[in-house]
């Protein structure tokens, strides 16, 4: 469980909503920042996530639906 303060994360993590098929792994890896709606799709409460957790979520997403925004 990461306790890295958000100000050290410089970019937002985004969801490609068309690619996303609702596996829900992101909400587990990014607990406290992403959660899931009743149909299983992510709700992004806090898009700025720590780099490491974000990279993990990107790698683990079976649908390749996560990406870092271009700019901070």
């Amino acid at each position: 469980m990461s306790t890295v303060p958000d100000r050290r994360a410089t970019r937002e993590l985004r969801v490609d909503r068309i690619a996303c098929t609702g596996h829900g792994i992101c909400a587990t890896v990014l607990e406290g920042r992403f959660r899931l709606d009743e149909h299983g799709y992510p709700v992004v409460d806090r898009p700025r996530v720590p780099r490491e957790a974000g990279d993990t979520a990107i790698r683990f997403c079976p649908a390749r639906a996560l990406y870092w925004a271009d700019r901070p």
């Binding site: 609702g22 596996h23 829900g24 792994i25 909400a27 587990t28 890896v29 899931l36 299983g40 683990f60 079976p62």
Partner: peptide, 21 residues
């Protein structure tokens, strides 16, 4: 297991993916 009607969700899916890798 990652596809189909009974595919794992959320925490379960994370474990399956981690173990798979």
């Amino acid at each position: 297991l990652v596809s189909g009607r009974r595919r794992p969700h959320g925490e379960q899916a994370t474990v399956v993916m981690a173990v798979h890798r």
